[in-house]
Amino acid sequence: MVSNLGEDCIMALGRSKAAMSMEDIASAMELDEGTIRVTVTTLEDKGYLRVRPDGMVHITNRGRRFAEVLMRRHQLLESFLGQVLDLDTDEVHHEACSLEHKLSDESVDRISRMICPKGRGTRPCWAGDAEVTPLSELDQGGRGEIVFLRCEDKARISRLVSMGLVPGREVVLENEYALGGPLLIRVGDCRMALSRELVGLVMVRRI
């Protein structure tokens, strides 16, 4: 388990693109350096971040993944508070910051199902992020970066992955065919036709 302070610290590092000094982290979290030093050491032991000899704190891959999960949860809460409870934008952020640590997985799951019924479970929910849609919803000629694959069925996931549709890659929707026909997409140098239902599992962020 990671403490509340630890979670905040990982989020601060996850948000920043570069490594941070202790001082930066402390000011980002509005705390003093002494308070966070212990937290940083604990997180280092758990493998989320690493302190280099020059004192700069780097986030590890593991830390970055964890930060993504935390940030998605934060976003989920913000959109819940903003869209469903209609709170003011200023309040939303602070409210989310204090709630996020206490929320059980079950609650996250329920909220995510409530405000984005298509996303499932603790999967990243991008309800607050209007830019994320199924690939099949892009306009003809539209571009997107794959964010995640929305599916529980291992065989389909495996098929998508082996055809090169993995998160992080850029895709273009080239053509659509009538009568429930396939969608023609381009990934990297490859062009392929996939059935609508398969393409709908690929969630992209418009670019």
């Binding site: 993504e68 998605r72 291992k154 495996s158 998160p167 992080g168 890659r169």
Partner: peptide, 16 residues
């Protein structure tokens, strides 16, 4: 649970 992404998808992402 931790990454919100299944392991095979992540392995694929790293390979690409």
């Amino acid at each position: 649970e931790e990454h919100g992404e299944s392991m095979d998808v992540h392995i694929g992402r790293d390979r690409y």
